[in-house]
Amino acid sequence: MKRQANVRIKTLKIDGIDVGAREGETILELARENGIHIPTLCHLDGVSDWGGCRLCLIEIKGSNRLVPACMAQAEEGMEVFTKTPRLVTYRKMILDLLLSERNHVCAVCVSNGHCDLQSMAQELGNTHVGLPYLNPSLPVDATHPYFIMDHNRCILCQRCVRVCREIEGAQTKGAMGRGIEVRIIHDLNEPWGQSLTCTSCGKCVQVCPTGALLQRGKAVGEMVKRRDFLPYLQMMRED
């Protein structure tokens, strides 16, 4: 009887498929292992989870609350659903909110064709935005010698903030303001080029899902990001 308390493997169901999870594994990790795709924009392998984009919301049998798959831990006997009609509807609406929030003009964006937001719209079948555009007036910070931050394309996923803090350890990037006024800032809201803490490592640029962070000199569609270094870095550090 005592042995049962030490069972570390949990068995559960995702979309009707039986799966086995390690202790502490999230539903998102588990789903990916088993070839079940759950959309997300703020999750990034190699850094901590944020739970802000709400695209990976899932339903768990017996609970009427939706939880983000990236932060929900697998429990014994759970029955998880990732593609119920209402989840699909909410995801499309959330994406509409993101597309209406700032000025995402794919046709003239450096990341056209290599953008997570753009492909998410395609994946979820958002052929148009059902909400009026908010058309905010936002600056572009081009003070850094190598990189540019275009707030018009930012979706506030905070991947850059997390990679800067957790992997590079510079803590240059942060967020300020409330609600719709939240902005990604450098140090104490200084121009990026004047940041004393930025190491110009460029990790933030590579992890940015959209064209908000880019390398100087890139034209439309030229900004291709590399993400493979992150899990690798993390793995090497663990060893």
């Binding site: 802000g52 009026p132 506030l156 409330r178 609600g179 719709i180 939240v182």
Partner: peptide
Amino acid sequence: CMTESCGKCVPCRVGTVHMYN
């Protein structure tokens, strides 16, 4: 609510603005 949203999650950050509008 719109001005007091922390801005972390999308529905609250953007949804409240649309509802207010």
